[in-house]
Design a binder for these strands. Structure first.
Lengths: 199, 199
DNA sequence: GGTAAATACGGAGGCCCCCTCCGCTTTACA
DNA sequence: TGTAAAGCGGAGGGGGCCTCCGTATTTACC
């Protein structure tokens, strides 16, 4: 991602360093998901099978680790969008991706508080994720519009905000099924050929 | 607030207990404002001049302390509304109270994350504060409407949500002045007789 | 393959915080 | 003033935070 245009002939990053960084990231995801944003960093290091020193070298602060996990998660959603886009018909791909977003929040309930803190403390993280997710969604959306299966006056931002809004206002038990249903309603509403089924 | 209808002739709460509880609450406000939601509870006890045991007896968990602080803050806004209502002309009272709400958030930036966590974790806290603040605002608002200085199609919830919304989307440096300006714009918009005088 | 220099690793250690427990003090009431 | 209930304080064991530095690994070059 970087280094190619550096002036110095920098030596390649060490293999163990790369490996450990990935391990810590994976472990952090688990620990924060289970224990919320206050989860122990020593537990992250143990889970990753590295020393605490290694953890702190890669991520000097808790906040830095939050941000890295967040970016990693966003990246996974982007890749999922690409895959769904090539594997499924347009409308179904869109619907599945929106469901995945909800589940993304659901499976990380503890994580979400941590991410909320991370996002709140760094506003360019919001911009970053809106941009990445927006581009990924753009492709799915355009394909569906061009196929003529959904209306053309919905923007990617409309959709992202809808998902966020639906998740945000639901924190009661069983909310996930409810939100998925609402997403389906929303997707139905976007369809062109309205058989006007009951909502 | 309670105890009057208890069956047993319970003995009056001890004076030192009442005093210490208040001290801890005040100290917690300072510490959380300075250090955010992760502020040290031992620091709270030190600041309050009590032992940690006392703190934990009054507030068994960090969450309990958050909630108590939050309720206390809400109460202060309610009392401010009552006072402004009797001291100032209707429109000015309303405007001042809205400004106070913004400053309430501003002076407690660290605190706000703590409160966000508290509110997120306990949804009846949201209901409680909406109810209390709504009633307080109701009086101010009705007085202004009856005096004929503002339009009558704005609800208390409209106003509370506007304030929250304006604060929520502003976290850049210098946001406070900006939001206060927007509040003034909003209040101007509510005025009936637009003499567009300076504020 | 061998070597030197750069780079990264691990975990001990000092510090602070969490929370419980219990002997001591203060208070309310008679 | 007596006394029992209620509350107080802080020591102490457990654990997390983060830094520091001797050691191990890896790369680049011969």
């Amino acid at each position: 991602m970087y280094g190619a245009l550096s002036a110095k002939p920098a030596r390649r990053p060490r293999a163990d360093s790369v490996r450990n960084r990935a391990r810590v990231l994976e472990a952090a995801k688990l620990v924060f998901a289970a224990g919320g944003p206050a989860g122990s960093l020593e537990a992250v290091a143990r889970q990753a099978g590295v020393g605490v020193g290694t953890l702190y070298r890669h991520f000097p602060t808790r906040q830095a680790l939050f941000e890295a996990v967040y970016r990693h998660e966003v990246q996974q959603l982007v890749e999922l969008a690409e895959q769904l886009g090539t594997d499924l018909p347009p409308l179904e791909a869109l619907r599945r991706w929106m469901h995945a977003n909800v589940e993304f929040v659901a499976t990380k309930k503890g994580m979400s508080a941590a991410l909320a803190v991370a996002v709140h403390a760094s506003s360019d993280l919001t911009a970053y994720s809106m941009d990445r997710l927006g581009r990924a969604l753009e492709t799915l959306l355009r394909r569906a519009v061009e196929a003529g299966v959904i209306r053309d006056d919905i923007s990617t931002e409309d959709i992202l905000r809808t998902i966020v809004g639906l998740c945000y206002t639901h924190d009661k038990p069983g909310w996930q099924g409810n939100v998925l249903r609402l997403v389906d309603v929303f997707v139905d509403g976007m369809r062109r050929s309205q058989c006007s089924g009951p909502i």
